[in-house]
Computed example of a mutant assay.
Amino acid sequence: MNPTFSDNSQIGMVATFSELVHTDFKGETNALCWFRNLEGDFAAIVNQLQLKENITKVSPQDLLALQLSQKGSIAREIILNDWRLLTDFGASPSLNLLKCYERDEDFDFISTDVYSYHVDRSPITTDTFLCTYHGAASEIITNKQAVQKVQIPEIREQLKALHSGDSAEFEDFLKDNYFDLHYQSLPNKTPTNLGVGHLWRLAVDHPKQQVLPCIHRAPVEKEGEYRLLLIC
Rank of each mutant, 00 (worst) to 15 (best):
1 M>F: 07
3 P>H: 07
5 F>H: 00
7 D>A: 14
9 S>Q: 06
11 I>D: 00
11 I>G: 03
12 G>S: 07
13 M>G: 00
14 V>H: 03
18 S>Y: 09
18 S>M: 06
22 H>Q: 11
27 G>R: 11
27 G>F: 11
27 G>S: 14
28 E>Q: 01
28 E>N: 10
30 N>H: 10
31 A>Y: 09
31 A>D: 02
33 C>H: 01
33 C>L: 02
34 W>H: 07
35 F>M: 02
35 F>R: 02
36 R>A: 08
38 L>M: 03
38 L>H: 08
39 E>M: 05
39 E>F: 09
40 G>R: 06
40 G>C: 02
44 A>L: 09
45 I>P: 01
47 N>G: 13
50 Q>V: 12
51 L>V: 08
51 L>S: 15
53 E>G: 01
55 I>H: 03
56 T>V: 04
57 K>M: 09
59 S>T: 15
59 S>R: 05
60 P>Y: 08
61 Q>R: 03
64 L>V: 05
64 L>E: 13
66 L>P: 00
72 G>Q: 05
73 S>M: 13
75 A>G: 04
75 A>V: 10
77 E>M: 11
80 L>C: 14
82 D>G: 06
82 D>Y: 11
84 R>W: 13
85 L>R: 11
87 T>R: 15
89 F>D: 02
89 F>G: 03
91 A>M: 13
92 S>N: 13
94 S>N: 12
94 S>Q: 12
96 N>K: 12
99 K>G: 04
101 Y>A: 12
102 E>I: 12
103 R>I: 10
104 D>L: 10
104 D>H: 12
105 E>K: 10
108 D>V: 10
115 Y>C: 13
118 H>E: 08
120 D>F: 08
125 T>K: 12
125 T>H: 10
126 T>C: 14
127 D>N: 13
129 F>I: 13
131 C>Y: 10
137 A>L: 11
138 S>I: 06
140 I>C: 05
141 I>Y: 04
142 T>H: 14
142 T>G: 15
145 Q>S: 15
145 Q>C: 11
147 V>K: 11
148 Q>P: 05
152 I>F: 10
156 R>Y: 05
160 K>Y: 10
165 G>E: 07
169 E>T: 11
170 F>L: 05
178 Y>H: 15
183 Y>G: 06
192 T>F: 02
192 T>V: 15
193 N>L: 08
196 V>M: 03
200 W>N: 00
203 A>E: 01
204 V>H: 06
209 Q>M: 08
213 P>T: 11
214 C>Q: 15
215 I>W: 02
218 A>C: 05
219 P>G: 12
221 E>Y: 07
222 K>R: 06
223 E>R: 07
223 E>M: 03
225 E>A: 03
226 Y>F: 13
227 R>C: 00
228 L>V: 05
228 L>Q: 03
229 L>I: 08
232 C>F: 09
